[in-house]
């Protein structure tokens, strides 16, 4: 099986690679169109700021490539946000795979932003959550979130309910960091790799 991690200016993806190592999965880290198209599984990670990342994807043509992929694609964190229609972060038009807008958590007493740390997810509806305990804890770091929408397959609460995971056709996405979310995160990644 060929797994590709998409290479772009997505900050530190080292921990994603180590997580795949722990699962015994081999992978390529590349931005080459042919390699990405021929992969069995594609991981689209992301740490950083939405507009900078989108500009880079546009320059490389990855903004058109990613939505046209037909194999299973998993976007995480900012990767998930870039798969949505729009991000309020620097007013950024994103790839629009998921028809939902990503909004900043409103300033609310008692809630620091970013939402950082371990929070529980529920209302599962994705093959990626198979075998997870109810209210499993995963690790989040983000200031922007997609509201609950028809593509939501796991939700979480911080200030208000939001989408922890999205799914549409061959596209899967998680707002949290699977790669450092303990055994739960490992299970989600392994579920993705065995789709």
């Amino acid at each position: 099986m060929k797994t590709v991690i998409i290479k772009y200016n997505a900050g530190n993806v080292q921990s994603v690679m180590y997580a795949l190592d722990r699962l015994g999965a081999s992978y390529l880290y590349t931005d080459d169109e042919a390699e990405i198209r021929s992969a069995d599984k594609v991981i689209f990670p992301g740490v950083g700021e939405a507009s900078t990342a989108m500009n880079y994807l546009r320059r490389k043509g990855l903004d058109r490539l990613i939505p046209s992929l037909t194999q299973p694609v998993l976007g995480t964190c900012v990767g998930m946000q870039l798969m949505c229609r729009y991000s309020e972060e620097n007013n950024t038009t994103c790839m629009g795979i998921f028809d939902v807008d990503v909004l900043r958590f409103p300033a609310t007493p008692g809630f620091k932003v970013p939402h950082m740390g371990w929070n529980s997810i529920h209302a599962y509806g994705s093959p990626l959550t198979a075998g997870l305990p109810e209210d499993a804890y995963v690790y989040f770091v983000h200031s922007y979130a997609a509201p609950v929408c028809p593509f939501t397959v796991a939700s979480c609460e911080y200030v208000h309910p939001f989408s922890a995971m999205l799914h549409k056709d061959n596209f899967y996405a998680a707002q949290f960091h699977c790669e450092i979310s303990g055994e739960v995160g490992q299970r989600i990644l392994s579920n993705f790799l065995t789709l």
């Binding site: 921990s15 722990r22 960091h177 450092i180 055994e183 995160g185 490992q186």
Partner: peptide
Amino acid sequence: VAHTINIP
């Protein structure tokens, strides 16, 4: 450490 552990 990064290779071994799966938490931040």
